[in-house]
Every structure is written in structure tokens, then in C-alpha cells.
Amino acid sequence: MTHDIHFRAASPADADRCYEIEISAYEGDEAATHEKIATRIAQYPEGFLVMERGDRVIGFINSGCAYDVVMSDEAFKELVGHDAAAPNVVIMSVVVDPAEQGKGYSTLLMETFVGRMRAMGKATIHLMCKDRHVELYRKFGYEYVRPSESDHGGMAWHEMILVL
């Protein structure tokens, strides 16, 4: 049932709901702060895609762009070094409300995001994920790059890339 799902760029009014979803889906220090989410919306709304069912946000992907991607760069999570004109997209969060998971929404969200980045002329999409998500991202077409140097949130991460 995806007929009532739609996508749009985030607006500042979405920060509270996106933060609520972020902290419900990520463990401990993995979750972005409310401030980081608000910054990402303000500085790069075209890279912050929200998915709504009806008028309620149920998931989102947020990102920034860089000429030289350094996945372990913590400052980039606050969009330090972000340049909207850069060809390489770095995904920071892919989140679906836990109450809405298992319905195919993450696939729809990722496919829509990738389509939008392709339409914007981007060259690559980079992300980091945990062990349990490596195969999921491979199914989306991402290639495994390497274990990440990042220990964000005290976790082990893996870098992946999708060439557009």
C-alpha cells in the first residue's frame, strides 16, 4: 500500500518529527542531535528527503555533498565542508519509523533518493552502515569499500558506494 506515500524536501518544521524518528531508530550516540538535523535541513534541504504517509513523516534520508569524501569526518555530519555543487553525496541517516518498518518503505525511500540524486547530476552516493545492513545496501546496488575508521557511537561501520 504505497498509494498514500509521497516524498518532498524537508522543511524546518520537520526537525522535531525527524529527530523523534532518528532517536527511535538509532542506538545511543549513533543518533544525530536535534541541532544536527535542523542544520542539515537548513543547509541542504534538497538532500534531506522526507517520506510521508498522509501528512505524517514516517522516514527520511539526509545527506551532504563533498568533492573529497572522508567518511570518518565527524565535522561533516554538521555539514562542515559541505558544498551543494559537489558531485559526491554522503548519506548521514536512512531512517524509517520503527512502527512502519517491514513494509518495503526503506526500499521505496532509497530508490526515490537515488533517483533524485541521479536527476541532480550527482556522480556517487556514499554511506556507512553496520554489519547487518551491508547485504541490504548491496541489494540497492552499493559496493563494499572497506571497514570504516569511524567508531561513531562506539560502533563498527562499513563504507559503501553507489556509482550513479
Score class of each variant (00 low, 15 high):
86 A>M: 11
97 D>A: 13
88 N>E: 14
102 G>S: 07
82 H>C: 03
107 T>N: 07
76 F>R: 13
101 Q>M: 13
98 P>N: 07
78 E>L: 04
87 P>K: 07
77 K>E: 10
109 L>P: 08
85 A>T: 14
106 S>H: 00
102 G>W: 07
86 A>S: 14
104 G>P: 01
74 E>I: 03
109 L>H: 10
82 H>F: 10
75 A>Q: 12
87 P>I: 10
103 K>M: 10
89 V>N: 05
83 D>A: 14
103 K>R: 15
84 A>P: 15
103 K>P: 03
101 Q>P: 12
102 G>M: 05
91 I>F: 04
104 G>Q: 07
79 L>D: 12
106 S>K: 02
79 L>K: 04
74 E>N: 10
78 E>K: 09
82 H>I: 12
85 A>I: 06
98 P>I: 04
99 A>T: 11
101 Q>N: 11
73 D>H: 08
96 V>Y: 06
100 E>C: 12
89 V>H: 01
94 V>L: 02
93 S>E: 15
107 T>H: 01
107 T>E: 07
88 N>H: 15
87 P>L: 11
78 E>W: 14
109 L>S: 10
99 A>P: 01
88 N>G: 06
105 Y>V: 07
87 P>M: 10
90 V>E: 04
82 H>E: 01
93 S>I: 00
79 L>P: 06
100 E>R: 00
94 V>P: 03
90 V>A: 11
96 V>C: 13
81 G>I: 12
104 G>L: 02
92 M>I: 10
92 M>H: 15
107 T>K: 06
98 P>K: 10
96 V>Q: 11
75 A>K: 15
77 K>R: 15
75 A>E: 14
90 V>C: 15
